[in-house]
């Protein structure tokens, strides 16, 4: 048992080591563009995060795509999850398979096949094609998360609401939706992080537009500006802060 604790500690360290390196490198003044070594401490990268051309624009674009894709995928996925868990209808089995398959399909295949569709339809590649692509692979994940939440819900709660004079619409609004909310929020967060972090599918369907992961990929060939690590560190800090705040607020209630 003690052995498993040691292993657990080492595994956690392994998971967090690169994050520490990212934070460290954000304060690095590299000696040349292709160097990955820590050369000299500096605050210059933090003072000028938007220095490298296109970096901040790509972050902003990724955020916009992420938000749009999240909203759409969450709405579509939540409706699907309700349909699949609450109703029996013909074609439920095949639909379940259709929802599962995108998760089992490699991203290269998802990205390339969609590109072929856009090319065949002469759809100009760019912002919207990437949004469409992201919604497509995020929907399944939202469905899975929301479905799990709905499956764990006591059906008597909705019966109780109906019994207490709530019409079907009121039952949905005052009982079902609030109870499903944690699942919907979790699904939305997952969708956003999948979209914001996606490189492969975006790379196929973005045309000349650049998202943040695409910017990182591109600069990895030419030498990474240290500001990329600033963005990475800032993202990490914001996420940690959000988690801490929500945890404390929940505890305060």
């Amino acid at each position: 048992m003690r052995g498993s604790r040691v292993v657990a500690g080492l595994v956690l360290a392994y998971l967090l080591l690169p994050v520490a390196v990212v934070v460290g490198l954000s304060f690095n003044a590299p000696s040349n563009r292709l160097s990955y070594d820590f050369d000299r401490f500096t605050l210059a990268n933090w003072a000028d995060p938007c220095g490298p051309a296109g970096l901040c624009a790509s972050v902003l674009r990724s955020a916009q795509i992420g938000l749009l894709a999240t909203v759409l995928a969450t709405v579509l996925g939540t409706l699907l999850a309700f349909g699949l868990t609450r109703h029996r209808f013909r074609g439920r089995g095949p639909l379940n398979a259709l929802v599962f398959l995108p998760m089992a399909t490699p991203e290269v295949v998802l990205g390339s096949s969609l590109l072929a569709l856009f090319t065949a339809g002469a759809v100009p590649l760019g912002f919207w094609t990437v949004v469409i692509a992201h919604v497509m692979f995020c929907v399944s994940f939202v469905v899975v998360v929301v479905k799990a939440r709905l499956a764990g819900m006591d059906p008597r709660l909705e019966e109780a609401a109906a019994d207490l004079y709530a019409s079907p619409w009121h039952t949905f609004r005052t009982v079902t939706l609030p109870l499903a909310m944690p699942g919907i929020v979790a699904g939305a967060l997952l969708a956003f992080s999948l979209s914001f972090d996606d490189f492969i599918v975006s790379n196929f369907n973005a045309g000349t537009m650049t998202t943040f992961p695409m910017f990182v990929w591109g600069s990895a060939q030419r030498g990474i500006p240290p500001q990329v690590n600033v963005v990475g560190t800032a993202m990490f800090a914001v996420a940690v802060l959000a988690v801490v705040i929500t945890t404390f607020r929940r505890r305060a209630r």
């Binding site: 006591d154 008597r156 709660l157 019966e159 109780a160 609401a161 109906a162 019994d163 207490l164 004079y165 709530a166 019409s167 079907p168 009121h170 039952t171 009982v175 609030p178 109870l179």
Partner: peptide
């Protein structure tokens, strides 16, 4: 009549209290 239209109320076996 649907449940919400009846002047009848129920105490459920597992209580079915709204947790939220």
């Amino acid at each position: 009549l649907r449940p919400h239209q009846r002047p009848v109320n129920t105490v459920f076996q597992s209580y079915a209290l709204f947790p939220h």
